[in-house]
Amino acid sequence: MTLIQLTTSSSRKIAARLLRMLLRDWRVVFALTVFVAIGCAALVSPFITDTMTATDTGRLLRGPGPGHLLGTDNLGRDIGARLVGGAVVTVQVVAIAVGAALVVGTVLGLLAGYLGGWVDAVVMRTVDGLIAFPLLVLALTIVAALGPGVNNALIAIAVVITPQFARLVRGEVLSLRTRDWVAAARIVGVPTPVLLYRHVLPHLAGTLLVFTALQASTAVVAEGALSFLGLGVQAPDPSWGAMVASGTNYLSSNWALSVFPGLALFLTIAAFNLLADALRDVFDTHRTN
């Protein structure tokens, strides 16, 4: 067995052991259950768009019961169906906005930390400027500039979160770049992109995983808040934040309208927070609470 085979087989063993450790943790199981439910809802929702927008004018603001399992909203639309539809936005927020922020922020952080000089100065001063804004205030300002709507909300959330990733990665890279193996790779003449990808990035995996889970939780809250304020997802498309908002006008006639979408958001956010805690325990990276 060659050395390379040996290291890959042992790293696979480590990965398998980490995975087993994680799957025994109730927090991970809870998070995965919530994610699977949201994923299934998002997959089903294209097939029930008619149910989502159909108005049952004879039954406005009904509580949970037969016919409409979770009740109806102020236009007589089925709350359950709209709840399923709202999952799509949540998936978009995590997959598109957080995904983009993760990639762009990591690349910027890697370059700033490794290259230093004016690249570092430009990236980090921009990051400082953006981080100075309270999160929702910046997101609101961006939506104010671009106009309300789900795409602009996704852009705003990505822009708000990207500097967080850039700052984290840059800090890690600053300490990694002085390590022996990085110096060795540089001396042998490994091109910078390859060096960053192969010899620096893998060491950030654990930290980034924990941080991504935390940022996903932040992003879901931010989208919910934007849609709650009427600046995110626009009617008649369903979004949990917008549903909570419309329900606040009818709290005394039908509590279900606010409570079910609010619970969906709560479970999603809790899932990401608990997942981050569990991952942190396993990877024992920086305490970023």
Partner: peptide, 14 residues
């Protein structure tokens, strides 16, 4: 930590 304030607010009102 997990309850968004735009949901907690309406709950408290209710």
């Amino acid at each position: 930590l997990a309850i968004p304030n735009f949901f907690l607010g309406p709950l408290l009102v209710l």
